[in-house]
Each structure stands twice: as structure tokens, then as C-alpha cells.
Amino acid sequence: MIQRPTENEYPAYYQPYVSLVPDTDLVQLLNENLQETVQLFESISEIEGLFRYAPTKWSIKEVLGHMTDTERIMSYRLMRIGRGDQTSLSGFNENDYVVSSQINQLPIRDILDDFIATRKATLTLIHNMPTDAWAKVGVANVAEITTQAIAYIIAGHAIHHRTIITERYLSIM
């Protein structure tokens, strides 16, 4: 069973994401979160998908691509650590990933479909994770982290970025 991680199970910089996750069944939340994300991004046109609320900020399409990249990486970490792999896993620079993706050239529907596929793979991984795997500790980005903390970070990260889209992008378009 996935428990809310304690603050010593993950680096402090993940606290904003973990704090966004309500006390509920995490798998149910991830499913609901998927539906809310689909509804949000299905309402955004191709032109709106290129909108940036400031010149140095990512476009809406880039935010969705970043959400997908991050979930894919965090799910990989969840799998490796949950399976007991003690290899230190490297970090990643999200800005480099966004620039290298050239995601603004893709239709928003394709980007959303990639997020959907990634979330469904995350849900399958979580569903099939053995109970004893949730407390396992590994190292990612030079910091110790538990499998259950990663699951909460995945959920909170998506909530965080959906909130930003709603509050900082759609509110001024």
C-alpha cells in the first residue's frame, strides 16, 4: 500500500509537489488527475498551445511536454528503486529537455496522447508494484528517495503544472 511519504523520504525541493497531494487513494487520484489533465488540454487550441505568459516562460505545449518527460523519468526511477536497483540514477535538466524536444512543432493532441500513454504506463507500474517495494530507498539526482515518495511527486508535479496553466496562462489569454 502506498503511504504518504515523510519528509525524510525525499529531498526538500520536492516538498511543494508532495504537499499538493491530498490524503486520498493515490491511484484513484492519479486516474482523476489524468481525466482533469485531458479535459484541460482538450480545451486548448493549437494557437493557444503556443501561448507564453512571459517571453522567457514555456509555451502551454512545452509545459505539457515537460509534464510528460518528468513523469516518464520519475516512473523509471520508481521502477528501478522499487525493484531494488541500487544504482545511483542521474538527474536531468528540464530546460534542456524542453528546448531539445521541439514540442511546439507537434499538434497539441499528439502531445496530450503522449501524456495519456505515459500516465497509463505509470498507473500499470504502480498497480503491479509489490507491497514491500514502496518503502525501498534508492538514490536519484544524488539524493536518497523512496519509491512511495516518487509516486507522490508524480501526482503533485502534474497538479502543480495544471494549476500554473489555469492561473498563469488561461487567466490572461
Score class of each variant (00 low, 15 high):
6 T>S: 14
6 T>K: 13
7 E>C: 07
9 E>A: 12
11 P>A: 14
13 Y>N: 10
15 Q>I: 12
17 Y>D: 10
18 V>C: 10
19 S>P: 05
25 D>K: 09
30 L>H: 10
31 N>P: 00
31 N>V: 04
35 Q>D: 10
41 F>L: 00
47 I>S: 09
49 G>L: 07
50 L>W: 00
51 F>H: 08
52 R>K: 15
52 R>L: 02
52 R>Y: 01
53 Y>N: 03
53 Y>R: 01
53 Y>A: 05
55 P>V: 02
56 T>L: 03
58 W>E: 06
63 V>G: 02
67 M>R: 02
68 T>V: 11
74 M>L: 15
76 Y>P: 03
76 Y>S: 08
78 L>Y: 04
78 L>H: 02
78 L>R: 02
79 M>A: 15
79 M>E: 12
80 R>F: 12
81 I>L: 09
83 R>H: 11
87 T>D: 09
89 L>V: 10
90 S>T: 14
92 F>H: 13
96 D>E: 15
97 Y>N: 08
98 V>S: 04
102 Q>N: 15
104 N>Q: 12
107 P>F: 06
110 D>F: 02
111 I>S: 06
111 I>A: 06
113 D>C: 00
115 F>A: 01
122 T>K: 07
126 I>H: 05
126 I>L: 15
127 H>D: 13
128 N>K: 09
132 D>F: 07
133 A>V: 01
133 A>P: 01
138 G>I: 07
141 N>Q: 04
145 I>L: 10
146 T>L: 12
147 T>R: 06
149 A>H: 10
149 A>N: 09
153 I>R: 05
160 H>V: 07
160 H>I: 04
166 T>R: 11
166 T>S: 14
168 R>W: 04
169 Y>G: 01
170 L>Y: 00
